[in-house]
Design a protein around this nucleic acid. Structure first.
Lengths: 203, 203
DNA sequence: CAGCTAAACGGACCGTGGTCCGTTTCGTAT
DNA sequence: ATACGAAACGGACCACGGTCCGTTTAGCTG
């Protein structure tokens, strides 16, 4: 024990878990690409883990070590597809991005979130079997809505209020009737604006 | 074609689908009982379809003919466990049942629904993998909330408003932190009352 | 009661999600 | 360059959900 050189953490270990080995990172990317491609081509429902592994040229065990479960893999694919929207929300042009006042941002948020939900409906369902919803996607939306509500001077249990506000934006998941083919989606959005007005106590 | 006696429907076939054969009904009950018992003993997560079939003394195919899927079976068990609560809502004593004014009924609804959700959390998760939620349980809650909102003179898109109102009552499903061990559940209920006030535009 | 049909039955069978463990590879320390 | 421990790899393996189809049975008709 005379040589203290066996201690790896010379720096305070800022980044939490140790970094990924190079082969691991490479495989993660291969897998994500393969999965995305397969999902696009066949729809999420039809994609099997074996197929993803094969397409990525990797063993099945590797898929599960990286993504834990089928649900985890789908969540990763989803997150990846939603980064663009998230970027728009965080730093895109107003009214969705910063610059507009909070109410207008909220409305833009609702509209675009509703559209995105419809667009990714199948993938969301696959990524979120058994509503654990700890996945990045939901967390992002919740955080942002809480922020906007605060900006609007809303006080109270923000978790409850944000949950209430977000739920109807997921209606397309339950009711396949609600699609982009106009009619019902506009109706939902209209109702949602009313709801937002009530929750923020607008006259 | 001279004998028209081959036509079964002498009466206009009021009851929709034809009634169940006696053996089928018997097996449905056996299966429901067996499933309920197993769920109670081992928790829903651990109950396999083979086990239910065996415990009911029935072939596996029969389980699937009756309940379509594992999810369907769990939904049936859940429905059965929730009948008592539903009866209270429909015809029990006030303020949950009829007799009290709509606002008080709504509050009682929220309280008891929250408690019931916590009580049946695991079962609900198993019964509702991939939020189809066409199951009786959710439909009942939605219908009742819409009714109460109407009584309170709320106008607008009631589907959207009811969805918003019901969502936070399912928070325990997402956050295992929220349990009956007092603190957080009271906090959620408090927040929900505030939400209900906002949605019905109470001062 | 015999005969018939549609429905219900059961369990062998299949595909897929998930695990396990012997082998290989990476990164480092000497 | 070599040695070595930790981490990643791969694919055989298992369990469970769901289907299929040959067999049995309920309930009617004459």
């Amino acid at each position: 024990m005379s040589h203290p050189s066996t201690e790896p953490p010379l720096l305070p270990l800022l980044g939490g878990p140790p970094p990924e080995r190079r082969d691991a990172a490479r495989n993660r990317e291969r897998l994500l690409d393969a999965a995305t491609a397969l999902v696009e081509r066949c729809g999420p429902r039809a994609v099997t883990m074996d197929a993803v592994a094969a397409a990525a040229g990797v063993g099945k065990g590797t898929v599960f070590r990286r993504f834990r479960s089928r649900e985890g893999l789908m969540a990763a694919v989803l997150d990846h597809s939603e980064t663009e929207w998230q970027a728009h929300v965080l730093s895109g042009p107003p009214p969705l991005g910063p610059g507009a006042d909070a109410w207008d941002r909220l409305l833009a948020f609702g509209r675009t979130r509703l559209e995105t939900t419809i667009l990714h409906a199948e993938l969301i369902r696959e990524a979120d079997r058994s509503g654990a919803r700890s996945g990045g996607a939901q967390a992002f939306a919740t955080t942002h809505v809480r922020y906007l509500l605060t900006q609007l001077g809303v006080t109270g249990n923000l978790t409850v209020l944000a949950t209430a506000l977000l739920a109807p934006l997921e209606l397309p998941l339950r009711d396949p009737q609600v699609s982009l083919d106009r009619f019902p989606v506009d109706r939902v959005y209209e109702g949602w604006v009313d709801l937002a007005g009530r929750i923020t106590r607008r006259p």
